[in-house]
Write a protein that binds this DNA or RNA. Sequence first.
DNA 1: TTGATTAGTGAACAAATGTTCACTATTTTA
DNA 2: TAAAATAGTGAACATTTGTTCACTAATCAA
Lengths: 191, 191
Amino acid sequence: MLIETQIEKLRSHYRRCGTLPTYNEMKNLFSYKSKSTIYYLMNRLVREGILRRKDHKLLPGKNFRGFPYFQSVRAGVPGPAEEEANDHLSLDQFLIDKPLSTILIRVRGDSMIGAGILPGDITIVERTGSAKPGDMVVVNLEGEFTVKTLRREGDAFYLDPSNPNYPSLPMAGYAEHSLVGVVRGVVRKFS
Amino acid sequence: MLIETQIEKLRSHYRRCGTLPTYNEMKNLFSYKSKSTIYYLMNRLVREGILRRKDHKLLPGKNFRGFPYFQSVRAGVPGPAEEEANDHLSLDQFLIDKPLSTILIRVRGDSMIGAGILPGDITIVERTGSAKPGDMVVVNLEGEFTVKTLRREGDAFYLDPSNPNYPSLPMAGYAEHSLVGVVRGVVRKFS
DNA sequence: TTGATTAGTGAACAAATGTTCACTATTTTA
DNA sequence: TAAAATAGTGAACATTTGTTCACTAATCAA
């Protein structure tokens, strides 16, 4: 069996189960008859950096999780070489720097359309105690989450939309308002 | 130690290592003296659905990977209750339906700004042999990746930008052109 | 075809894993 | 306070793990 196929089988298993298969499971997964075959195979994958070992335990390596990532466009002659990814990227790892204080919030409405945030997009929000003017923030206004850009004018704070059809909201206008966090990213899935 | 703290420690370990710690490792991680304490603790986490077991092996459960996810805005009275996520979401799992045929491509240029795709965004591209008119596609034009919307006019195909400053490109105008895939999603990280 | 290299086998092994048990310490309830 | 319930301990256990070894089968170059 092609080693690329085997790697993909490991990736699939890992995605499904959240863990690498044991040597015995791999034996069946790859249709081998001996555990030691797996052992040598895994050594090879460790050597290639796809997996790691930590006291006799097999772990995902650098490029195991994630997906082929084409960093930048390659100008020049097209050919099969360009089809090979230089790197792998996990969206979870890439997008979220502070896992312990990050939440995801789905956006409604088109008030931030000018900033490339469309209705239905999911924002990546880092829960912080404070934000500075210019930050894109999620604010809880009387029980409803709103995404806006924070602006300061003297001592007053305003929440600016990125859509000419909506007005800028003075924070002082809301009895109940609290900062949920700062928007660190956005994701969108097409239906 | 609070059980929530313990779960967060497990999550951290899992993010870092790509695997759950063993009972012995947990013993140290949680500062317990006996493995059987861990055993009972894990039973509890399994009962709560945070972890699963598959023939004596501990696996991440339903809400273990991923991040607190607030599906929709809750109108009504604000309060502590609304601060609790109903669900957890992994971006990798949510955004990518076909892991085996999906790649990530970083976008340059602002030709799709009207569709909410900004320069520097990463597109989630499903590699397909074909696309239908209306699909947002990545095309390899003479060695360079381009994101555009596919349009058909009679027998001719065009690549439409979402930016009035750019022209529509006739596919026939390029000696070397090939479909890379269909755009299924976009992600953006703020600096 | 020969010889050399690589890939796969199966038995044996020490170490580590999850599990069980009888027991003690701590906390909670009445 | 006493009684009941919960949380934690440590030794012992059967399994399973990854590992090693001597060996065979298959592949490839000359």
